[in-house]
Nucleic acid binder design. Structure first.
Lengths: 344, 344
DNA sequence: TTGAAAGCGATACCAC
DNA sequence: GTGGTATCGCTTTCAA
């Protein structure tokens, strides 16, 4: 059996209480005694028993608030599943989660929910923000109140958030670029269907793609001019129809956010399935189908479940055990899915 | 706060001991009372507090044995890291891990270590087996002794093991095939560098590849005749040299196990880097380098760390909480790595 | 068949 | 500064 605090106490000839205070330097202990305790703890190879610690700390009772935007999207539904899972697992530790779901992007709703959660006395908040000054301000105010904030899925990097959990969209874009390059050994034409241009995530997926293409020096790959489709399948459909008319020899279409269903439909209608190949984002149900049917060749997934699952744990680690995340951005895996490795 | 056994006891008017026995049907409780307890537990929404449970169960003390073969390989080193990590985390639960490292494949050593562990009284064993009758027999004998066995990395499917943690090599082969197909839109030549033909894992990576190629009906892809390289880089090097002489227009080389360093060297010497592209297995240090240098285009990783990390938890769940894994094979993620998404 | 009580390991409060 | 003790939720043993 592992070493306990009691054993250290016995060895040094003090009480557990003193050992506890020394080990966690809570003060109120004679420096010499503390030194002796620390030394014997090291000698005996003491490591805190996290289960005992966890149990003792359930006495403190915590409430965490979570605010999600765009909950109507499949991705956010996966995030929610992750949150619920975390909620169940953390209930044992005396944590309670309060989830607020916001349809679409709605800054004022988010601000309201923050205030509401604070009024109800939550000790930590996780949210999917937009990087707007008002929200950044509010996060900083929460920081001053001693309420840690974790951003998820999207970030507010200029704020005093504890950390961010989500995809490194720039690297995801680079990865997509690599896939496109590998798909076009003899070169060819690439069409990009962009999302909202003012959305940071989509913009990063785009610039990562372009930068990697440039640094791979693939000048036999031709980029066709592109417009954003604003995540709308009907726009994407129409854009693709036109592009296919002008360029029936198109090689790859890169969809930086939504719109892949419209794209695939247009390809299918033109009888070019498998010929014109598609790289898209997020392994959700519709995309699973499109992968299996051979309409999409690669999906880059951002691990939405994990984006919901981790933040509550980060907050509880911070609040219960004073543990700060190692990095201020915890990037989820950039996971490449094909029809043959769909499941995780 | 969540409902506790004490609260149920108070509500029903019995003691916690009785509630405990009823909830976990340990017997020795009046059926009617038991029924009443179960009912109120449901009504009050009781869920067992795993922390309390875990703490109470640390009184029982368990030892688990782990036997790994081919520990000299980078993959197994990752497995070992996973095991050590699990060991640290489980020490709190009163679990102790006893790791036995075997160089190369050595059936008799494995059998010896099993016996040695049993003599020393371990309650569960994890091992990387070869599917040989003697070992299968031994695993079945352990089963009869009530000692659960988890296989990892490689499997012994015909044995009475509790479950297997590792890659679905057939699907990994299919995935590799898909990558090769996507890399050769106009068709081209594929050369396969196989490992040991009598190794199930390698054989499955091969047949998955061939089957997927067939089912994708890519008859413009030509498979060159191949020999095994037995995981030796010098053989792989020579084979590749010859193939490149005969087929300078070679498109893709698929390396089913080791040998990729020899392959890459030959490609590099022929000045065909990036021209002749490589799909290989396992994200270890050498392969990371080769990815970054553009010598290998895709690595399919089997999550070796996880293969070490999970089995001790599976055994402890089984022994401490009577939880049986949902499936008899827990396949690790088939993870596709490129130079741009190397880190997990 | 049931209850009471002693742990598991750590924390925190209250006396001294 | 320090020790004693109640407590967290559950398991397990021992009497009754």
């Amino acid at each position: 059996m592992a070493v306990t605090m009691q054993q250290i106490a016995d060895a040094v000839g003090v009480s557990r209480g003193t050992v506890d205070r020394a080990l966690h330097n809570r003060g109120r202990v004679n420096p010499e005694v503390a030194e002796r305790i620390l030394q014997t703890a090291r000698d005996m190879g003491y490591k805190t028993n996290i289960i005992g610690q966890a149990l003792a700390r359930t006495k403190r009772n915590f409430r965490l608030g979570i605010i999600l935007q765009s909950v109507e999207t499949p991705t956010m539904q996966d995030v929610i599943r992750g949150i619920r899972q975390a909620g169940e697992e953390l209930r044992s530790s005396g944590l309670e989660l309060d989830l607020r779901e916001v349809q679409g992007l709605d800054l004022s709703r988010v601000l309201e929910e923050i205030d509401s959660l604070v009024r109800e006395g939550v000790q930590g908040i996780a949210l999917s923000p937009t990087d707007r000054p008002e929200l950044v301000d509010r996060i900083d105010r929460l920081y001053n109140l001693g309420i840690p904030v974790v951003t998820l899925n999207s970030d507010a990097p200029s704020s005093r958030r504890l950390c961010f959990v989500g995809m490194d969209n720039y690297r995801a874009g680079q990865t997509a670029s690599w896939l496109a390059c590998q798909m076009l050994p003899q070169g060819g034409k690439v069409f990009i269907v962009a999302g909202h241009l003012n959305n940071t995530a989509h913009a990063n997926r785009l610039s990562g793609f372009l930068d990697a293409l440039a640094s791979e020096r693939r000048d036999n790959i031709q980029l066709l001019s592109f417009q954003p489709c604003f995540g709308r399948d009907d726009y994407a459909h129409e854009m693709t129809q036109h592009i296919l008319q002008d360029h029936p020899d198109l090689g790859v279409i890169y969809v930086t956010s939504h719109g892949q269903e419209g794209v695939c439909q247009a390809i299918s209608e033109a009888g070019l399935t498998g010929q014109v190949r598609v790289i898209a984002y997020d392994l959700n149900e519709p995309n699973r189908q499109l992968l299996e049917n051979g309409m999409i060749q690669f999906v880059i997934d951002q691990r939405a479940f994990e984006q919901g699952y981790r933040p509550p744990f980060l907050l509880s680690d911070y609040l219960l055990y004073d543990r700060v995340p190692e990095t201020r951005q915890l990037y989820t895996d950039i996971s490449i899915r094909t029809k043959y490795n769909i499941s995780n």
